[in-house]
Amino acid sequence: MDWILDFYNYRVAVQYVPEFTRGMLATIWISLVSLVLSLTIGTVAAIMRMSANPVLWRISAGYVQAIRSTPLLIQIYVIYFSLPALPLLGRRLDELEGGIIALGLNAGAYMSEIIRAGIESISRGQIEGAQSVGMTYLQRMRYVVLPQAFANVLPPLLGQTAVLIKDSSLVSFIGVFELFGAGLTVLSERLMPNEAFLTVAVGYLAIYGVMLFFSNYAQRRLGGVRG
């Protein structure tokens, strides 16, 4: 059994359970806050993108293009190092704030594309059907467009959330402690990369598994509604 301990010394991994747990909770927390932020930004950007006003339209399109064409790591650096240079806050952003804002802005661009596609997927005909029975704009949105858009959009939104969770590992670059950071701690203290990063991988896989379960569940539930 020695070769197992050689490859992966679980006794060491067990020693670091508190670190891994703290890291896991931090990852979940960071992802959750960034998710809420990105959904808010994404919804606003999607509505702006569909507006008839060319200024709003262009701002939203430019934002999405800029995010999609540059790496998240650079976005994190720019926001964490450069935003404090602007006399906005009067103080430095701390690492956590900078990281979450960057993650939220990044995911928000992808979310906005998903949300827009969802709303546009509702056929013109159904909207006219709703108009023809006299439903107001808000009633059409509330009873016809949004329920269906939500069903169409939930699976890709969950997929993007899984990406967001993985991407949150990059905030360790600016010194935020989370699941990957826990791995870095083990590496630097014990010089045991397998015990560090295989354990971290299992942690991410556990979160991913839960996401996958919800995604399948949602697909089955919502798929059923549309027959």
Binding site: S123, G125, Q126, E128, G129, V133, G134, Y143, V144
Partner: peptide
């Protein structure tokens, strides 16, 4: 218009039923 449309029924070529 919404009020007026209540009094005018319309049936479309492609039905336009609410699919959900």
């Amino acid at each position: 218009l919404n009020r007026l449309r209540r009094g005018v029924g319309m049936v479309f070529q492609h039905f336009n039923l609410f699919e959900h």
